[in-house]
Design a protein around this nucleic acid. Sequence first.
DNA 1: ATACCTCCTATTGTATACGGATTTTTGTGC
DNA 2: GCACAAAAATCCGTATACAATAGGAGGTAT
Lengths: 249, 249
Amino acid sequence: MEQKMSLEEKATASARPKRLGKNGDGSERHEVIYRAISDAIIKQQLHPGSRLREDALTEVFHISRTGIRKILQRLALEQLVTITPRRGASVTRPTAKEARDVFAARQMVECGLMPEVARHITDQDVDELREMAKREREALKTGEQSTAIKLSAAFHERLAQLSGNATLAAFVGQLCSRSSLILAVYGSAGHLGCESHDHDDLIDYLAEGDGEKAKAFMNHHLQEIEASLSIVEEEAAAPDLHQIFGMTS
Amino acid sequence: MEQKMSLEEKATASARPKRLGKNGDGSERHEVIYRAISDAIIKQQLHPGSRLREDALTEVFHISRTGIRKILQRLALEQLVTITPRRGASVTRPTAKEARDVFAARQMVECGLMPEVARHITDQDVDELREMAKREREALKTGEQSTAIKLSAAFHERLAQLSGNATLAAFVGQLCSRSSLILAVYGSAGHLGCESHDHDDLIDYLAEGDGEKAKAFMNHHLQEIEASLSIVEEEAAAPDLHQIFGMTS
DNA sequence: ATACCTCCTATTGTATACGGATTTTTGTGC
DNA sequence: GCACAAAAATCCGTATACAATAGGAGGTAT
């Protein structure tokens, strides 16, 4: 319920019932809705496993099923939602193997990108990154976990963009989104994602132009995150409700 | 014209006009059609820039526009087709920068994967790869360029799959597909993609379990392919026709 | 002959309704 | 409490309608 509320909140902010905003801004509207759902997932306001019924979404966003389906398809291709043949869409619950694969991929790509980033980075970029890291720290301090998670992903994605390779940057973006899901499933409660000062240290290395050091640090950074997770195969479909809720007898 | 013919050929092979195959096999049909179009693009039977009108596709594949649009959306997300707001879909014509980015990405990921592949590979895998390489060589010999191109991409993708990392393998698959388009645009006529014996040599290194050597060879292999291309920004819309066709006066 | 402007056609984007199929849930009996 | 059956909910694919726009055809002026 509260999930729907938060979605509606975002929707009314932009999808003003202009009634006949028929076309022209159409694709724009789709983009906004896509981002709203995507953000809600990344911010862990929509938890893995949550079902996303088409009718409900059409109602919330005041859009036709056609549009919703298009958006859900896109999210499915990005692995943020899972569409099961006749059951509809639900927020993806990454398996343990997927989790390991995603982090292995991040390790390879993000680390490999660091030297390139160090070579391309400008003073202006450094300022922007510092600003992002600062906002992230503040969000953490004020307890806005959702925001902090999203900002952390955005930081890593922006970093990849600075390499100049759009293809790899887009890939990193997807990996970060999925990482957010992984944290939601396998992360321990207290410890969430990146350490607050890690990003600042990383920026320092990049500002110095020391790509190798940045690479090593990123390696360490990602390893630390992955190590903080407890990636174990969870119990199957019908878990032990009896065990969870004491004895039923 | 001939493009449509080849598409129809593939379509009738599977999308038999069962008339009311209404539902059930629906998603399967979609998958088949998706692959048909995807293959046609990768095999360069559909050239970059070719328009893919929805009506034409519905006619060829006997599918509704809704279904076609879904498939086109997917192809667009994989960068094989480009959808321009009110102009519809066309086979993507990669820019020079995209071409460089794709090859840089392949360099990083495929090379980085080689040690892992060498670690996981089994004798059975080696046999399978040898078989694939053989078929590719035969296709080259008999002049089936389209088939050879597709087999080459399939080889690289299968190789990535052997690393055990599904996420990175899927990414490599996309990169290979896009590479095919890049070859179509920037490749010289005679020289197409991988050298015939390169793949066999690579298999040897992997069979020996020498991941580092395989990595170095893959590096060389990809560099060679990229070097064989002439990746230059092509002239804009209205080039110098006067200069091309002698003096007009 | 060329350039520019207007109108028209073709095609896409979106919404909606419908039929069919499957999953999930509810209800009943043992 | 469990198994089975009926019912409801929901999704998937298709067909259709309509609005909106892009690109081209054609005409006109210089």
